[in-house]
Design a protein around this nucleic acid. Sequence first.
DNA 1: CGCCTCACTTGAACATGTTCAAAACTTGGT
DNA 2: ACCAAGTTTTGAACATGTTCAAGTGAGGCG
Lengths: 231, 231
Amino acid sequence: MTTLIAVSQQPALSPKAEQTRQAIAEAAMRLFRRDGYDKTTMRAIAQEAGVSVGNAYYYFASKDTLIQAFYDGIQTEHAARAARALATETTFAGRLHGVLRAWLEVAAPDHEFAGQFFRNAAEPTSPLSPFSEESAAAREASIRLYRQVVEGSDLKLAPALRAELPDLLWLMQMGVVLFWVHDDSAGQARSHALVEKVVPMVDRIARLSRLPVVRGLVDDLLELMVALRSV
Amino acid sequence: MTTLIAVSQQPALSPKAEQTRQAIAEAAMRLFRRDGYDKTTMRAIAQEAGVSVGNAYYYFASKDTLIQAFYDGIQTEHAARAARALATETTFAGRLHGVLRAWLEVAAPDHEFAGQFFRNAAEPTSPLSPFSEESAAAREASIRLYRQVVEGSDLKLAPALRAELPDLLWLMQMGVVLFWVHDDSAGQARSHALVEKVVPMVDRIARLSRLPVVRGLVDDLLELMVALRSV
DNA sequence: CGCCTCACTTGAACATGTTCAAAACTTGGT
DNA sequence: ACCAAGTTTTGAACATGTTCAAGTGAGGCG
């Protein structure tokens, strides 16, 4: 299943308009990367793109909205890089590790910049929140990735867990991202260490998930997820 | 060890100055609660407090800084209410449950308002971040609370886990807060459901932590924490 | 061609967080 | 009482995200 993911939801713009839109988005990206999110003004973006300030607002509802492009970029690149890992790795741990490391590598160049606008994603009401309605498409694409991690692997699981595991792994990625954003170690070494340690742990838990004792704990967890969805 | 916690770090103001400072902080709080964080302007705060805008900035570095008072308030009230729970509950699960529910209850009236400025706390560089240097005092006070949860209980644990558990429980509280902020269910019913389910789970894991299988997983976790600290 | 419509574009105006030089006030010393 | 030094207060000015009424131009229609 390799449907082209139609990320855009705009009502189809004329070629010229699309070009303007692109120019603004790219100018913004360029300046965000160069000067950081806060230091980049809308006036500067407009000037860099060769349009007026108002024009930028014709295409983008707010300054925040402009970083949606950044999100999409990371997401796309991550999917591609993760696919390479999934093509070679066959073990669960290997696949999970590959996908997580892919994310760290893709995001690395934008670490500093990411910290600056992370707050926008953190706000519950923001469309940029990973839990928002608006980012449902991206979220589901990401979860699909983790479904591939599970399904392509040698892992034997209780069916109930198998169904929920992709969601849980996505949640784990959110945790890694959260850690990464706060990680000020050189080259995000601590984030890499986290992934290095967490992957074998998850692998072990998953493999033990059919043993009586662990099984009980996993059932608790699944029950929790079901309960939260229904409230 | 009941040293008075000196939350303030200001270089000691004259009584009159302190009064002005209070007036501004209280006016801000009042308006934040009534109109929300974003809708409340610095000009409105100054007017409500009966001072000039510049004066507000003489005492508070930014609008964000003004919500520190809110933090302190929650923290203090939570400590008090949690203490009541700790005085009566003797089981680990009961104590943990009491402390977490106390937080939900204390924070409930400010749920809507909290969502609006949560982004400030999420930004890694912000002093309001729970991981920041500036909030170290509050963080440690909170961790102490969880140390009481563990130490006052009947729980038998491997020493290594006993030492780390308060930190882990604090981290869990951060998770609950994160969930709570995003929780738009009536009366934050889902957050309550989360606590209701998570507490028995944690209790079970802790009790099983000396069984061979679980023991291995817990050791992994402890090793992870040590590793992350050293990187 | 002339005109109409409507997508697109503009820049001035506005709202609000923040800064700062100057004014007002307080305090301690003589 | 008066002055100097420091503290507190002021409000105008500034920077920047955002809005909006008005302008521009390209395509369609008579």
